[in-house]
Simulated assay, not measured.
Amino acid sequence: MSLTTQFYTMIAMIGMGGVFGAALDTYHRFLKRPDRSRWIVFIHDVLFWVVQGLLIFYVLYVVNFGEVRFYIFLALFCGFSAYQALFKSYYVKMLEFTIKLVIAVYRFCRKMFQTLIIAPIRWIITVIIVVVIGLAKFIYRLMYGLLKLLIAVSKILLSPLSLLIKIIWKLIPKAIKKHLIIYYHKLAGVFEKSKNTMIKVINRWKRKK
């Protein structure tokens, strides 16, 4: 390995040590260990260390084709220590600011979405429902009024016919009236039997179905 490659490797590993420190602080900020179960924390820890190891090895492979030397670990430790001593406080502040900024932007976008899209849709749906209910009530009242008017007109038109039937009924001899009443009861009995038969047939069909 040439001196130039060794120099690049040292610089890259120092940088990766700093990146690892920043990633570790970011990981702890979002993980919130006290609020998580132990097995979840364990799985996240394993995944974090695997990802960091793969990332460091990838950078090492790009710089010197993956040759591992003792000074690489020293360079990583120096980069991590430099981050902890010089940049950690600034990075943590920047991270918190970024998180607050993202949350504020998200809340603003959500509020704008609710104001510009959700609220008009709700208003349109409410107006449609009110209009439909109003039309239904209007149609119901109109039909009810027409039905009452039709019944009143029918009573007026049929009253002379009813009066004529009563007069004719009074003029019919009693003997004929008795026969008519007997025929009426017979017809009523026939209709009642037919009705009962139809009901039985329908019930049997429903049971078979």
Rank of each mutant, 00 (worst) to 15 (best):
T4H: 12
T5C: 05
Q6E: 11
F7A: 05
F7W: 06
T9D: 12
T9I: 00
M10Q: 05
M13R: 05
I14A: 11
G15D: 03
G15V: 12
G17P: 05
G17S: 10
G18W: 08
V19A: 15
V19G: 14
F20K: 06
A22C: 12
A22V: 01
A23S: 07
L24R: 07
D25H: 08
H28L: 12
F30G: 14
L31T: 13
D35H: 02
D35I: 03
D35K: 10
S37K: 10
W39K: 04
W39M: 11
I40S: 12
D45E: 11
L47F: 13
W49F: 15
V50S: 00
V50C: 09
Q52M: 15
L54P: 05
F57L: 13
V59C: 10
L60K: 10
Y61N: 13
V62N: 05
V62Q: 15
V62K: 14
V63R: 13
V63N: 08
V68D: 07
V68H: 09
R69Y: 12
Y71K: 03
I72S: 06
F73R: 01
A75M: 04
L76K: 02
L76P: 03
F77V: 13
S81H: 05
A82C: 11
A82V: 13
Y83G: 05
Y83P: 07
Q84N: 01
L86N: 02
L86W: 02
L86S: 11
K88H: 06
K88S: 12
Y90Q: 04
Y91N: 00
M94E: 03
V102R: 09
I103D: 11
I103P: 00
F108E: 06
C109A: 15
C109P: 00
R110D: 07
K111I: 09
Q114V: 07
L116A: 08
I117E: 01
A119W: 02
P120Y: 05
R122P: 01
I128P: 00
I129D: 14
V130M: 15
V131I: 15
V132P: 01
V132Q: 03
I133F: 15
I133P: 01
F138Q: 11
I139T: 08
L142A: 10
L142E: 15
M143H: 01
M143C: 08
Y144D: 15
L146R: 11
L147H: 04
L147S: 09
K148Y: 05
L149H: 10
L150I: 10
I156E: 14
L157E: 06
S159K: 14
S159M: 07
L163V: 13
L164Y: 04
I167R: 13
I168M: 04
I168C: 00
A175M: 01
A175D: 11
I176K: 06
K177Y: 13
L180Y: 04
L180T: 08
L180F: 12
L180Q: 07
I181Q: 12
Y183A: 14
H185M: 03
L187M: 08
A188Y: 13
A188N: 04
G189H: 06
E192C: 00
E192R: 08
K193E: 06
K195P: 00
N196Q: 09
N196L: 08
M198N: 00
M198Q: 07
I199Y: 05
V201I: 10
I202H: 02
N203G: 03
N203F: 01
N203R: 05
K209F: 04
K209M: 02
